[in-house]
Simulated scan of single mutants.
Amino acid sequence: MTFALTCENLVKRYDGTAVVDHVGFHIDTGEAYGLLGPNGAGKTTTISMLVGLLRPDEGSVHVGGIDLASDPIAAKRLIGYVPQEIALYPELTARENLRYFGRLYGLGRRRLAVRIAEVLEAVGLTERGDDKVQTYSGGMKRRANIGVALLHEPRLLILDEPTVGVDPQSRVAILDSVEGLVADGMSMLYTSHYMEEVERVCTRVGIIDKGRVVADGTRRELVAELGGTDKVDLVLEGDVDTAAAKLRTVEGVTDAAVTGQNTVRLLAVGGRHLLPALLAAVEGTAQVTGVEVIEPDLEAAFLHLTGSTLRD
């Protein structure tokens, strides 16, 4: 099987210190893959090697089966790269920027005209295509930046923090555009400091910390590394202490503690499935007036694996 991207044992050293230390992962064709890590984890350096801006000290990168080191031009033709910084000419309109970059990509005049119209539609800028980029909001500039990366119909789109510094409305518009590309089968590498974006867009996630990939898998697989323990809060009326003691005996419950005047917090495996047994256990002792099940999420898995939050 030919993957959209494969990197193996990537190493980059500065002053003898490995800031990227044998990083490896792959992206399936048509897959959106999220790369997460705290600041300084090595994400940007890794991406710079994936797109050919930095030469790795060790390791290899293949894009669509093409070795980036031995055939960089062919490999780069398959990549659309959206960097963190806006890479547009502000004095030009969006359409003029697209025309300029399209010629650099080698697109013919007729084909380029078609692609410009398609790209402006894809990123929601058709009506503003003839306005200068310097008049755009931050979110519109980022959408135009994505448009440039899409012009040559790449097989792999790499987006490095595409929503950083934009207002909430623009962020929603960018995510809608990205989701549309994923739905159309675009292979994608996506980094963000917003966990909810990665959960929304990506089917698989790699977590990088201190230059190494410490976990790789689906959201469910990463969360499973926490042991699958849910928190279940039961609000009770009645003998709360006795109810807590009974709840500890339910199979699947690892702990039950009174956390408030009328609340018992349980730690349990498969909390939602245990609810009938939990209700039965307190029957005759207390009445359940409220239930909340708190399942571990990707943020919790990230904290567990790296010891920090995503924005640290």
Rank of each mutant, 00 (worst) to 15 (best):
I208L: 11
K12I: 09
K12A: 09
I116N: 05
D21Q: 06
E96L: 08
A280W: 04
I27W: 00
E153N: 08
Q169A: 13
E292V: 08
D160F: 03
R110W: 05
N39W: 08
G228N: 07
P162Y: 03
Y33P: 02
E295V: 11
D241R: 13
K141W: 05
K141T: 10
R248L: 09
E31Q: 06
N97L: 05
I207Q: 00
V172Q: 15
D239T: 12
D255Y: 03
S170M: 12
S70R: 12
R142V: 10
A117K: 14
G16M: 07
K246Y: 11
T203G: 15
C202V: 01
L120A: 07
R77D: 00
G102V: 08
M49V: 07
H304G: 10
Q169N: 14
A280K: 14
L278S: 10
M195L: 15
R204Y: 03
V61E: 02
Q84P: 13
R55N: 11
V164N: 09
S192F: 01
A113T: 14
G138L: 07
D241S: 13
A256P: 13
V269M: 09
G290H: 12
L150E: 02
L5P: 02
S170N: 15
D297N: 15
K231F: 09
L50Q: 02
I174L: 04
T135H: 14
T259H: 08
A245V: 14
L275W: 03
D230N: 11
G165Y: 06
S308E: 12
D241F: 04
R13F: 09
K246C: 13
R111A: 15
L156G: 04
V282K: 03
K141Y: 04
C7K: 02
V172W: 05
V293N: 09
V172C: 09
I294A: 10
L92D: 07
D71I: 00
G42M: 05
G252I: 06
D176F: 04
E31H: 01
G42L: 02
G106A: 12
R272N: 14
L88I: 09
V166H: 08
A113K: 15
K210R: 13
V213Q: 06
G260R: 09
L234V: 12
L36H: 00
L181K: 00
E91M: 13
N262M: 12
V250E: 13
L275V: 15
L226E: 05
V23P: 06
D176G: 08
G80E: 03
V178Y: 03
G52A: 05
P296H: 10
G227F: 07
